[in-house]
Computed example of a mutant assay.
Amino acid sequence: MIRGVRGATTIPADQPDQILIATQELAMEMARVNSIQAEDVASVIISTTPDVISAFPAKAVRTIEGWEYVPVMCMHEMSVAESLPRCIRIMMHVNTTVAQNQVEHIYLNEAVTLRPDLVKK
């Protein structure tokens, strides 16, 4: 069965190195916490708020060892007034037998405010 694993993080400034480091950190933490191996990933969709434009976050996922062939795509999130700035979101589609309510979604940095109900204390 395919399950969606969500994650989000923020960066302090729109700089290529910050985008790549934060995206890779988030993807690796999502994989670690949920015991995800690259061969179990059907696809990854990454969205950014419109103020993140200096690098493709997908590059960060493709450079993780063993993840070179995982299909990854980037896009911009909707521009909504008062939304969290400089935010990077990941939706990972994973083949797993884990129940929906057992999937651990990961929120880092300022993104913990997006879904406090899902953030592990």
Rank of each mutant, 00 (worst) to 15 (best):
S79C: 09
V61H: 04
T10E: 02
I53Y: 15
Q102S: 14
Q100N: 10
N101E: 13
P85N: 06
R86P: 01
I19C: 02
K121C: 00
R32T: 14
V103A: 00
D51C: 08
K120I: 15
V94G: 06
Q18S: 00
T49S: 13
I90N: 08
I2Y: 10
T97S: 07
Y69C: 14
L20F: 04
T10R: 01
T23K: 04
R32S: 13
L118A: 12
M78V: 13
E68K: 08
N34W: 12
E77W: 06
T23P: 00
E25W: 09
C87F: 10
A8S: 12
M1K: 04
P85M: 03
E77C: 03
K121N: 04
L118Y: 11
I53F: 15
S79P: 06
N109L: 07
S47F: 04
I64Q: 04
G7D: 01
S47Q: 09
L114A: 05
D17G: 00
E29L: 12
A58T: 15
E77R: 01
A8Q: 08
A55S: 07
V44M: 02
P12N: 05
V103C: 03
D117M: 11
E25Y: 09
T23R: 04
R3K: 13
D40N: 05
I21K: 08
V98L: 10
V70M: 11
K59A: 13
V98P: 03
T9Y: 06
T10S: 05
R86T: 01
G4W: 07
E65G: 04
E110D: 14
A99R: 04
L26S: 05
A22M: 01
M78A: 14
S47K: 10
E77H: 10
V103F: 07
Y107C: 07
Q37H: 02
M91R: 12
L114H: 02
M28R: 14
R62G: 15
V61R: 02
T48P: 00
I36Y: 07
I88S: 05
S79G: 05
A22Y: 00
I90F: 08
E68P: 09
M91P: 05
V44E: 01
Q24W: 13
A58N: 13
C74D: 12
V70P: 05
M92I: 13
E68I: 12
E82W: 10
S79L: 08
I2N: 07
I21V: 15
E25Q: 10
S54R: 05
R32L: 15
P85V: 06
I45T: 11
P71H: 15
V103P: 01
A22L: 04
A81H: 03
S83W: 03
L114R: 08
Q18D: 03
P16T: 09
Q18A: 00
R89M: 14
H93E: 15
E82S: 12
T23Q: 05
L108C: 11
V103W: 03
R115I: 11
Q37W: 01
S83R: 07
A60I: 12
Y107I: 06
Q100G: 00
C87Y: 07
I45M: 06
